[in-house]
């Protein structure tokens, strides 16, 4: 069995030690630092990206809040404007309706007054006309009898006054 040939041991041990040392040096000095630097740089890159994304998330949240706030403000403003408009329009409507009512009332009053005046006028006229008419009638009837004439006149006058 070649494994048990002691004469080959020194050479194998020697070259094993030499090879292992060389490989250890290559690994620890060259290869491992390179691989670990690549992996580390990737980790830092990922960390950076995570950090950036977190920052961006925060920023978007701030912007979102701002947006919500401005939205609220605008809504409030709009509501205020609408309310204001409503109030002013209702006021205006009220005012104009009142004005209209007043005017109407005035006109109504005026018309009523006119009607009353007209009525009075007409009544006066009627009195006059009826008086004239009655005078005429009396004259025609009496035909020159002044005593009777005056008597009738006063009666008619009395009656007229009673009517009016």
């Amino acid at each position: 069995m070649p494994q048990l040939e002691i004469t080959t041991y020194p050479s194998q041990i020697f070259w094993l030690v030499v090879s292992f040392l060389i490989l250890y040096l290559i690994m620890s000095r060259i290869i491992i630092p390179r691989i670990s630097s690549v992996i580390k740089s990737r980790e830092t890159e990922i960390k950076n990206n995570i950090h950036i994304s977190e920052q961006m998330y925060k920023d978007t949240e701030i912007i979102n809040n701002e947006y919500e706030e401005t939205k609220k403000n605008i809504e409030n403003e709009a509501r205020g404007i609408i309310n204001h408009l409503k109030e002013t329009t209702s006021k205006k409507i009220n005012n104009s309706t009142e004005l209209l009512k007043k005017r109407l009332e005035q006109k109504l009053e005026k018309n009523e007054q006119e009607i009353i005046n007209n009525k009075k006028k007409v009544l006066k006229e009627i009195k006059k006309i009826s008086l004239n008419l009655s005078e005429e009638i009396i004259r025609k009837i009496s035909n020159g009898k002044s005593g009777q004439k005056n008597k009738l006149k006063s009666i008619i006058k009395k009656n007229l006054e009673e009517v009016s």
Partner: peptide, 8 residues
């Protein structure tokens, strides 16, 4: 004997 062998 530390000859360079096939093992080495």
């Amino acid at each position: 004997n530390i000859s360079y062998t096939n093992s080495s």
